[in-house]
């Protein structure tokens, strides 16, 4: 799926009525992707990415819509959504910040980078969105850029060689 989708997709609120994602152009895009695979089920990960790009997270109602479109059950779709860490089952901050703290980065001071993000965003704890709804900070397992410790992902942007000193400027640069 396309990685160049808008980084700041509007985040639907919890409990807001679900408006279908797979209508018009999105439906056409999904059908076009369907030509790549011999089964409908194989469209599940791409479809879930489309939902997350459009809504910011994947609600149970959205899972039900995906299930209907792909002829699966909502329970099956939820089973898949909950397996993969990148799919959000709840709304997250406008800027979703993932700091790699796995061993190769940990030996280079990644935990200090994590703490700097927590401190400067005002997030109370890892995974807890800031009161203004702007930030969520989490630890992520190995981002696959260990030679550029510490890598950080903010929404779909991938930053390399982040140090605690750079954190205020990075946050100031977010729109």
């Amino acid at each position: 799926m396309s990685a160049d989708a808008p980084a700041d997709a509007p985040h639907a609120a919890h409990g807001a009525p679900h408006t279908p994602v797979f209508v018009g152009q999105a439906r056409a895009e999904l059908d076009e992707l369907g030509k790549r695979y011999p089964t409908k089920r194989a469209l599940l990960l791409p479809a879930l990415w489309m939902v997350q790009h459009a809504r910011g997270w994947i609600s149970e109602e959205a899972m039900a819509e995906v299930a209907e479109v792909l002829e699966l059950t909502p329970a099956y779709v939820k089973g898949v959504v909950s397996f993969y860490t990148m799919y959000h089952q709840h709304p997250v901050g406008k800027h979703f910040i993932q700091v790699c703290t796995t061993s190769p980065c940990a030996v280079c001071g990644a935990e200090d980078v994590r703490d700097a993000f927590l401190r400067h965003t005002g997030c109370e704890a890892l995974g807890v969105t800031s009161a203004d709804g702007k930030y969520t900070v989490i630890e992520v397992e190995c981002l696959g850029a260990c030679g550029f410790a510490t890598p950080v992902m903010i929404n779909e942007d991938f930053l390399e060689s982040v140090t605690p000193e750079k954190v205020p400027d990075i946050l100031a640069g977010l729109k």
Partner: peptide, 19 residues
């Protein structure tokens, strides 16, 4: 979509299949 285990070849195939 975020799963180390999908680098294991049979898990990778399941993931492509939408599992």
């Amino acid at each position: 979509a975020g799963a180390y285990i999908c680098g294991e070849e049979t898990a990778l195939m399941n993931s492509i299949e939408g599992r």
